[in-house]
Amino acid sequence: MPIRRSARLSAAAEAEALPEAIPPPQPVAQKSRKRKAGPSNPGEGGGSPTTAPELAGPSTPNKRRTKARTAGPPPVTPTPGNAKLFGEPVALGTTPKPKPAAVRRLADPNATNATLLSPETSRVVASKEVEFLSPTKSSGMKPTTANILDEACAHLIKIDPRMEPLVKANHCRVFSPEGLAEKIDPFESLCSGIISQQVSGAASKAIKQRFVDLFDIPTQVTTGRRFPHPSQVAATKLETLRTAGLSQRKAEYVQGLAEKFVAGELSAQMLADAPYEEVLEKLTAVRGLGRWSVEMFACFALKRMDVFSVGDLGVQRGMAAFVGRDIAKLKASKAGKWKYMSEKEMEEIASRFAPYRSVFMWYMWRVEETDVSTME
Rank of each mutant, 00 (worst) to 15 (best):
L117V: 08
L117T: 10
S118I: 06
P119H: 03
E120N: 03
S122C: 11
S122K: 14
R123K: 15
V125K: 04
A126D: 13
S127H: 14
K128S: 14
E129T: 15
V130W: 13
V130R: 15
V130L: 13
V130H: 13
F132A: 11
F132N: 12
P135T: 07
P135N: 10
P135F: 11
T136V: 14
K137D: 13
K137W: 12
S139E: 13
G140W: 12
G140T: 10
M141T: 14
M141S: 14
K142N: 11
K142L: 15
P143D: 06
P143Q: 09
T145I: 12
N147P: 08
N147E: 09
I148R: 01
L149Q: 05
L149M: 09
E151L: 12
C153G: 00
C153L: 11
C153M: 08
A154P: 01
L156D: 00
L156W: 00
I157K: 06
K158S: 12
I159E: 10
D160Q: 01
D160T: 00
P161F: 05
P161D: 03
M163S: 03
E164W: 02
E164G: 02
P165Q: 06
L166W: 08
V167D: 03
N170V: 10
N170D: 08
N170C: 07
N170T: 09
H171S: 06
V174R: 02
V174P: 04
E178T: 10
L180S: 03
A181M: 10
K183F: 11
D185W: 07
D185P: 04
D185G: 04
P186N: 05
F187H: 05
F187Q: 03
S189D: 02
G193E: 00
I195A: 00
I195P: 00
I195Y: 02
S196I: 04
Q197L: 01
Q197S: 00
V199S: 06
S200C: 05
S200D: 06
S200L: 09
G201Y: 09
G201E: 08
A202E: 15
A202F: 09
A202D: 13
A203L: 07
A203D: 02
S204V: 04
I207V: 12
K208S: 06
K208Q: 10
Q209I: 01
Q209R: 13
R210I: 05
F211H: 01
V212C: 11
D213G: 00
D213V: 01
D213E: 14
F215W: 04
D216S: 13
D216L: 09
T219E: 14
Q220C: 12
V221P: 09
R225L: 15
R225A: 15
R226S: 07
H229L: 13
P230V: 13
P230C: 11
T236H: 09
T236F: 05
K237T: 13
E239P: 08
E239I: 10
E239T: 14
T240N: 06
L241M: 02
R242L: 05
R242N: 05
R242P: 03
